[in-house]
Design a protein around this nucleic acid. Structure first.
Lengths: 223, 223
DNA sequence: CTGAATCCGACACGATACTG
DNA sequence: CAGTATCGTGTCGGATTCAG
């Protein structure tokens, strides 16, 4: 890494890119931002990386003080965690997610790795970044069948997402594939895909959900 | 580009990196964020890029709708400008600059390309990002000898920088090299480098300047 | 002097297989 | 589960050349 990806600029942007500009590096950080992960978890989320390169990236990130490697006592497991330096990369990942949602979306490709937690994390980043507000706190449950359930929550100020279940104001039941297709669509096409979400809840709470995802209203949407 | 830097994830972060994750791409955007530039301007600021790769990156960024190429009527000059899609990358560059200032700084290497405008742009990003405030608006003049003069301005809310001269509250006269060394130093070492700045102005305005650059006070500094 | 194109070598990376 | 090893390909740097 130090060889070719060396800009020799006295510029913090160039310096940052020298550290985390290699292929896969920022995606490793993206996945570790959701919490500690094991080697095979990362392999799964990064779908397509070879073990050789994941090892290489993790070693580099470790040397750079971004990632910490913790061996679980007695077990063969290794947990990778972000240090503070690593967590401080959150704004970078967030900015990339926001830009990607606004300017680089496309429908999912056939056979593409599909992990709802990644998209939900991106959706919350975008909503927080655009300061999207509701009139009151809300809890939305997204049920992806055997791919698990996730909660998208607005606490009156910030948005957050986590795997799990809870009493929800709105429940969406949808396959991961259809969810991706919905997110990958532009506003006008989303209305047509709305039935695939099978929304349940009170009428005005459903309307909030739809507005948040850009149905029938411009501006302040997760696009 | 489309070959190896293709993640096949349905994730906006991965999508963004597919578009602007190649070497040099974001640095081209960094320099165009300060305004339109010609091919040779970019060559200069990117110190080290080969014309072949600058051409390649500009073509890719053009195809991606991030950069626009404008031929100046009658002349051979070509001006490269950012589109809205390109300007929307500002938060990404900003986040990288902030992280780089906080976690990847180092003193300038000998023979390293030195362009004060790049560092000033990064400094304003960092100050704005940390919401660094002064009690009143301020205009600071940085005179780099034959490398030109630059103005760092606080309008009571935001920080900005531009090349040029103006009546200033504080004037610093310093070589670009010493300025880089100052910025590359950690807080404790900066105090020692302070004399190289040759600050002029009223006592309390100078104190503001010093506080902003982390002298004698922790927190809310450009570090 | 500006805005490129061309050839070549180094190494970053992908695909596949294998191991403690 | 958490990696190594081997081999082929693509990306990039360096030097040179070229047309307005």
């Amino acid at each position: 890494m130090a060889k070719t990806k060396n800009y020799r600029h006295f510029c913090p942007v160039a310096r940052s890119l020298e550290v985390i500009g290699e292929k896969w590096s920022l995606l490793v950080v993206r996945d570790l931002l959701r919490g500690p992960q094991r080697f095979t978890d990362l392999m799964k989320y990064l779908g397509g990386i070879t073990p050789k390169w994941l090892t290489a990236r993790l070693r580099e990130l470790e040397r750079a003080g971004i990632v910490e490697r913790e061996s679980v006592e007695g077990r063969r497991e290794v947990r990778y965690t972000l240090t503070k330096k690593g967590r401080d990369l959150a704004p970078v990942v967030e900015a990339l997610a926001v830009w990607g949602i606004e300017h680089a979306q496309r429908p999912p490709l056939p056979g593409e790795a599909i992990y709802p937690e990644q998209t939900l994390s991106a959706v919350t980043m975008s909503l927080n970044s655009h300061r999207h507000r509701l009139d009151e706190p809300a809890t939305w449950l997204l049920s992806f069948g055997q791919s698990g359930t996730h909660i998208l929550r607005y606490d009156g100020e910030h948005w957050s997402a986590q795997p799990g279940q809870a009493g929800a104001d709105v429940t969406a039941t949808i396959t991961p594939e259809d969810w991706m297709r919905f997110l990958g669509a532009r506003r006008l096409e989303r209305a047509a895909l709305l039935p695939t979400l099978h929304l349940e809840g009170e009428g005005d709470r459903i309307a909030e959900f739809e507005r948040t995802f850009g149905i029938r209203r411009a501006g302040s949407s997760a696009d």
